[in-house]
């Protein structure tokens, strides 16, 4: 278990290191002198040169990239060009709203996804199985922002059931305003969850230990919900880990359509304002989050599966 965990951790770190390098190259390749941009066209050459020195822009590239890694390691993602606040602080201030949205979307995805997956697998080939399969691929195919716009149009503007804008105050108001954005963000993941669970349940049902359980007269219900689901749920955890990571960034559309604060809104505004440190900082943050959640999901599976737990312990 330990060596597996370390190996997975090492791979995750390597991936993040590569992503940081790619980000650095992109920042470096942007035309224009960041010092000149920051100080404006009328600043004197001497002033620009001084800022260049202060930012380390006059150093050789390998030295700059090391400084870049060094500052990230210290949690320094740069400063917001407009407010001057540290980027990490700006991101963390927006994080709770987005996490609430992701939480709501997960709720939307997990419960119906698991129920539909189990029903499809236990009623394989039935009308409800076929319907679930078509609905699953349909919600997976339609982009979430189109769903968000139509939900807003129907349920907020036409029916007036939900407020259209903002995150709200107080528990019930916040929850009320979370419904539509969560639905928009989570709908596709109902499809992913139902599909993977159905496939893995069918695969496990074909394994011979299920035949053994039947041969001892154990009830079909017991076999499905205990013997089969216990194994079949494991790949679903991987998919949901992937889902959380993707949702944190995918939230940008739900946040813009429903006028909510959050990480997506933050990065969108930063792009329009050419506030590069906030853009790169957010990309880095969401990538690390994504990698970390996937790592956590893999480790959780390893821990839940006695086979892996055993193999890894020895």
């Amino acid at each position: 278990m330990l060596s597996y965990g370390l190996k997975r951790l090492g791979l995750s770190v390597a991936v993040v290191v590569i992503v940081i390098a790619a980000l650095f190259v992109m920042i470096y390749a942007v035309p224009g002198d960041p010092a000149r941009v920051a100080l404006g066209p009328r600043a004197s050459d001497a002033l620009v040169a001084e800022l260049r020195a202060r930012l380390g822009l006059d150093l050789p590239i390998w030295s700059q990239i090391l400084r870049f890694y060094g500052s990230i390691l210290q949690g320094d993602l740069g400063r917001d060009v407009i407010s001057g606040a540290p980027v990490l602080k700006v991101i963390l201030a927006q994080l709770p709203d987005t996490l609430r949205l992701v939480g709501g979307a997960m709720l939307v995805a997990v419960v119906p996804g698991i129920v539909l997956g189990v029903i499809s697998a236990t009623h394989r080939g039935s009308a409800i199985d076929r319907l679930t399969s078509v609905l699953s691929v349909s919600v997976m195919a339609v982009p979430s922002f189109v769903i968000a716009i139509y939900l807003l149009l129907i349920f907020s503007i036409n029916l007036g059931w939900f407020p259209a804008i903002g995150a709200g105050q107080g528990f019930w108001d916040v929850a009320h305003r979370l419904v539509l954005p969560s639905l928009a963000l989570g709908l596709a993941w109902i499809g992913y969850t139902a599909r993977i669970l159905r496939a893995s349940m069918l695969e496990v049902t074909g394994q011979s230990h299920v035949r053994t359980a039947r041969a001892f007269g154990i009830s079909d219900r017991r076999i499905m919900y205990d013997y089969v689901l216990r194994i079949a749920i494991l790949p679903t955890i991987t998919v949901l880990g992937l889902g959380i990571g993707q949702m944190l960034s995918g939230a940008v559309f739900a946040e813009i359509v429903f006028g909510r604060p959050g990480i997506g809104k933050l990065v969108y505004d930063a792009i329009l304002a050419r506030n590069y440190p906030v853009v790169t900082g957010t990309v880095l943050f969401t990538t690390v989050f994504f990698v970390a959640v996937n790592l956590a999901a893999d480790l959780l599976i390893a821990w839940l599966d006695p086979r892996v737990r055993h193999d890894l312990a020895h």
Binding site: H209, R211, T212, R230, I231
Partner: peptide
Amino acid sequence: FQDPMETLNPVL
């Protein structure tokens, strides 16, 4: 059954 590797539930 034939294969003792496969005939018992692996997670129970």
